[in-house]
């Protein structure tokens, strides 16, 4: 059987002159439609590299990435990315940051009024409609990530790629945004691939957690299914035995079997 998104025996190495560093080795992973998959691993193991391969921002060295059985080899709006550092264009207002994506993707299929409504709809979805005329420099870090999310959602991607979307945020803002993402995911049923460093975040949000071994030549160490029913409530889960068991498994993987070795 074939998955919605399939990463098939992918290797990735970077060449610099005669030195070749192998970053990813034989990665195979299937993601079903509507699934929320997290990738967790120590810093520098190649998580961003894997995400960029799926996004098409980097070419694979071997193997292939298939989306709906079609090979992915260049970036496109069907695989929208929310970057770690928001990547909003600072000279555009919040509204125009989303509109640039909407106008590009739906320029020929939606009327001007429909596009405006779609921009506003997506801004409302992340609760940022009130700040539509502000510039990125005038809003907080959490708000920027919301707008980045709105921009990605507005492209109606087949797969939403999140590279540590909440990494730079404080714990409270982070929790708030996680709730927003959960609500959006349950409403729209997006297929999501998210990179994270945070074990709780991974267990709370994901259907499956992909744990990566340390580099160089990182591979998938283990894949854990999270059989928690949705909608999930942060507080109720804190004492849930399944939640705690999943959390335990990830922690064991990260800190016992593949504890971070300081690069020499």
């Amino acid at each position: 059987m074939t998955s919605y998104l399939k990463i098939d025996h992918v290797d990735k190495s970077f060449k610099r002159g005669s030195i070749e560093t192998e970053v990813l080795k034989d990665i195979t992973l299937g993601v079903e439609k509507g699934q929320y998959v997290s990738i967790i691993g120590h810093s520098g193991c190649g998580k961003s590299t894997l995400l960029n391969l799926v996004a098409g921002l980097l070419p694979v060295s071997a193997g292939c990435v298939l989306l709906e059985n079609k090979e992915v080899n260049d970036p496109g709006p069907d695989r929208a990315v929310v970057f770690q550092n928001h990547s909003l264009l600072p000279w555009l207002t919040v509204y125009n940051n989303v509109a640039i994506a909407v106008n590009k993707v739906f320029g020929s299929t939606k009327s001007r009024a429909e596009r405006h409504a779609w921009v506003m709809h997506n801004l409302e979805l992340v609760q940022m409609g009130h700040a539509k005329d502000k510039r990125p420099s005038e809003i907080s870090g959490g708000m920027k990530q919301r707008v980045g999310l709105a921009r990605a959602l507005a492209m109606e991607p087949k797969v939403l790629l999140l590279d540590e979307p909440f990494g730079a945020l404080d714990a409270l803002t982070r929790a708030h945004l996680q709730d927003s993402v959960m609500a959006i995911h349950s409403k729209l049923g997006n297929t999501v691939m998210m990179i994270t460093h945070d074990v709780d975040e991974a267990v709370l949000l994901s259907d499956r957690i992909v744990m990566m071994t340390n580099g160089p030549a990182a591979a998938i160490g283990e894949v854990l299914d999270v059989p928690l029913v949705r909608p999930r409530k942060r507080l109720a889960l804190a004492a849930d035995p399944t939640y705690l068991k999943c959390r335990q498994r990830v922690l064991e993987f990260l800190y016992e079997r593949h504890s971070f070795v300081e690069a020499a």
Partner: peptide
């Protein structure tokens, strides 16, 4: 590189890239 990545994901053509990313970013 972030802005370039945004342009790549959006598949901006060279002319759009010039007007919407390059000129404002280098302004």
């Amino acid at each position: 590189q972030d802005y370039r990545n945004v342009a790549l994901v959006l598949r901006l053509n060279p002319l759009e890239f010039f007007w919407k990313i390059m000129i404002p970013s280098a302004a």
